[in-house]
Amino acid sequence: MSDGAVTARGGEVRPPHRFGRELSPRVLGVAMNLPTLLTLTLVLAYPIYYAGYLSMHKVSLVQLRTGVFPFVGFDNYAKVLDDPLFLLSLGNTLLFTAFTVFCEVVLAVAIAILINQQDVWTSRITRFLILLPYAVPPIANGLIWSFIYNGKLGFLNRLLYSVGAIDGPIDWSGNADTALYAVAVPYIWRTLPFAILLVHAALQGINKELFEAASVDGAGAWYRFRHITLPLIMPVIVVLLVLRTSFAVAVFDEVLAITQGGPGDATWVASWYSYKKGFAPPFDIGAGAASAFLLALLVATLALIYIKLLYRRVD
């Protein structure tokens, strides 16, 4: 109360905006973090621990009803690792991730440089539209592309037919050889804006004088890109690789919308496998949790590999 004002009446009066007593920083700090702490404990900390617990126990519909989860050790992991479908899903996930991440990094750098051209007026239009795909709900995105791909009704065949590229209809997402890429293109479409923005922000941070000095010295566009731009945006590319990889490994919505894992099991990916294990008959939640845990392990491994390989080069 030491900083309270004193009025003519002689009593201590609180300034008008003041409510409550001044709390000590320590108490205030805890009080202000209480909502965050409670939410994070409930939604992140406890579930991460509990995922490990579930993966070591037999949990299915019967056990959910009785509330008793018998301990089974590593049986769930053994069951999942023995399942050829899980290994296929992992393989598909890795292929999907490698393809999308590679395309996104290359396209992001190219398009970021493109929209960074101040003296090309069409670049301004691209810059305005670039965020649009980011806002589209992934499930709607998948469905829209599934419509585009459709052999009978879709627009891709119509467009290709109009320009004379094909003679008959092609079922793009129904073919086991192309289905995974048919899922990858919409995924790239939706997630590319974010990658472009990151690279674009890094480009804007580069001192223009560097380019001018190089130009004066007679360096060509490729040389300037290779020896000025690329080294300076390398840290962002590392961040991009880690972020995009960890999210691409978790792809789900587009798979659900376009192929539901099909045709056959050509587009079963890891998230789809865990979802199907846990939430479709026979509701084997223990195995679902075990497969999801293995997926998390894969993400961690990939992230570590990137950081080891790339950060050393950047430094």
Binding site: I48, Y50, A51, Y53, L64, L243
Partner: peptide, 29 residues
């Protein structure tokens, strides 16, 4: 409060874990 910054950064990293990993236990909880 350094520990809050630390806690939230840890949780940012926790979000790199595929969401399905968290959804299975969250469903049971």
């Amino acid at each position: 409060l350094r520990w809050v910054a630390w806690l939230l950064s840890v949780n940012v990293f926790a979000r790199f874990v595929p969401i399905i990993v968290l959804m299975i236990p969250l469903y049971v909880v």
